[in-house]
Simulated assay, not measured.
Amino acid sequence: MDGAAPRFAADAMLARLARWLRVLGWDTTLDPELDDPELVFRANEQRRILLTRDRHLLRELKPHRSLEVRSDEPLEQLRDVVLSLQLEPPRELFTRCTVCNSPLPDPLSPAQREVLLPPDVRDLPGPARQCPGCGRIYWLGSHARRMRAALERTLPGWLAP
C-alpha cells in the first residue's frame, strides 16, 4: 500500500470480514442491497478496494481495485487481506463503529460514562465512545480482549502491544 489508510467496499457475502476490518479502524462499506454493477461503480467512484468472493463480478465488471477473497472463515479472510495488500497494523483498535462504519469520536467524559454506560462497566479502564451514526456505545470490556486475542492468533506479532 502507499501509506494511506486503506478503504474497502465489501460485498454482501463478506459482512463478518467487514466488521473485522472496522475493528482495525479501516473504512469499510457494506450495503447488501446494492446490485453488483452499483457496488463496483461506488467502489470505483470512492477509490475503494472491492473485496468479493464473486469471481463472475471480478471477471465481468472489472473493478479498478479489487481482491478476490477465497476463504470461508472471516479471520482467515482478514489475514489474507492484510498479507495480500501488505497492510500496516493500526495504531489503535476499535476506532470505527463495527455496525455503521462511522469513525468513533473522542472518549466519553466521566459524566457521559455515568449516564450512558451500564453500571457494571462504568469503572472499567480505557476509553468508551458513542457512535455518532447509530448511537451504539463501545467500551473495552471482555469482548474487546477476546477480539484482540483472536487477532493475535490470526496475525501473530502483527499488532502493536
Results as ranks from 00 to 15, higher is better:
residue 1 M to L: 11
residue 3 G to C: 06
residue 6 P to W: 00
residue 7 R to P: 09
residue 9 A to D: 04
residue 10 A to G: 11
residue 14 L to H: 01
residue 15 A to Y: 12
residue 15 A to G: 15
residue 16 R to A: 15
residue 16 R to D: 14
residue 19 R to H: 05
residue 20 W to D: 10
residue 20 W to Y: 14
residue 20 W to A: 14
residue 23 V to N: 04
residue 24 L to N: 05
residue 24 L to H: 07
residue 24 L to I: 02
residue 25 G to V: 09
residue 25 G to P: 07
residue 26 W to Q: 01
residue 27 D to T: 00
residue 29 T to R: 13
residue 29 T to G: 12
residue 30 L to G: 02
residue 31 D to W: 10
residue 31 D to I: 08
residue 32 P to M: 04
residue 34 L to A: 07
residue 36 D to A: 07
residue 39 L to Y: 00
residue 40 V to Y: 01
residue 42 R to V: 00
residue 42 R to C: 03
residue 42 R to Y: 08
residue 43 A to Y: 02
residue 45 E to R: 14
residue 45 E to F: 10
residue 47 R to I: 03
residue 48 R to L: 01
residue 50 L to W: 00
residue 52 T to R: 02
residue 54 D to H: 05
residue 54 D to Y: 01
residue 55 R to H: 14
residue 55 R to N: 10
residue 56 H to P: 10
residue 56 H to M: 13
residue 57 L to A: 07
residue 60 E to L: 10
residue 62 K to A: 15
residue 62 K to Q: 14
residue 66 S to Y: 15
residue 67 L to V: 09
residue 67 L to I: 08
residue 72 D to C: 05
residue 74 P to K: 06
residue 74 P to I: 03
residue 76 E to Y: 07
residue 76 E to R: 13
residue 76 E to K: 12
residue 78 L to G: 05
residue 79 R to D: 08
residue 80 D to P: 06
residue 81 V to N: 00
residue 81 V to F: 07
residue 82 V to R: 03
residue 82 V to F: 01
residue 86 Q to P: 04
residue 87 L to N: 02
residue 87 L to A: 06
residue 88 E to P: 06
residue 88 E to T: 08
residue 89 P to F: 11
residue 89 P to R: 11
residue 90 P to N: 06
residue 91 R to A: 14
residue 91 R to E: 14
residue 92 E to K: 14
residue 94 F to Q: 05
residue 94 F to S: 04
residue 94 F to K: 06
residue 95 T to E: 12
residue 96 R to L: 04
residue 96 R to P: 05
residue 97 C to G: 11
residue 97 C to K: 10
residue 99 V to P: 03
residue 99 V to T: 14
residue 100 C to L: 08
residue 105 P to Y: 04
residue 106 D to V: 10
residue 108 L to W: 12
residue 109 S to C: 14
residue 110 P to H: 04
residue 111 A to C: 07
residue 111 A to W: 10
residue 112 Q to I: 03
residue 117 L to F: 05
residue 117 L to W: 04
residue 118 P to W: 09
residue 120 D to W: 15
residue 120 D to Y: 15
residue 120 D to H: 15
residue 120 D to K: 15
residue 121 V to G: 11
residue 122 R to A: 03
residue 127 P to A: 13
residue 128 A to L: 07
residue 129 R to A: 12
residue 129 R to Q: 13
residue 132 P to A: 07
residue 132 P to E: 12
residue 133 G to A: 03
residue 133 G to F: 01
residue 133 G to E: 03
residue 135 G to C: 06
residue 136 R to S: 09
residue 136 R to L: 07
residue 138 Y to A: 01
residue 138 Y to E: 02
residue 138 Y to G: 02
residue 139 W to Q: 07
residue 143 H to M: 13
residue 144 A to K: 13
residue 144 A to E: 14
residue 148 R to E: 11
residue 148 R to G: 01
residue 150 A to K: 13
residue 152 E to C: 11
residue 152 E to L: 05
residue 154 T to N: 04
residue 156 P to I: 06
residue 156 P to D: 02
residue 157 G to N: 12
residue 157 G to I: 02
residue 158 W to G: 01
residue 159 L to S: 02
residue 159 L to K: 08
residue 159 L to T: 01
residue 160 A to C: 08
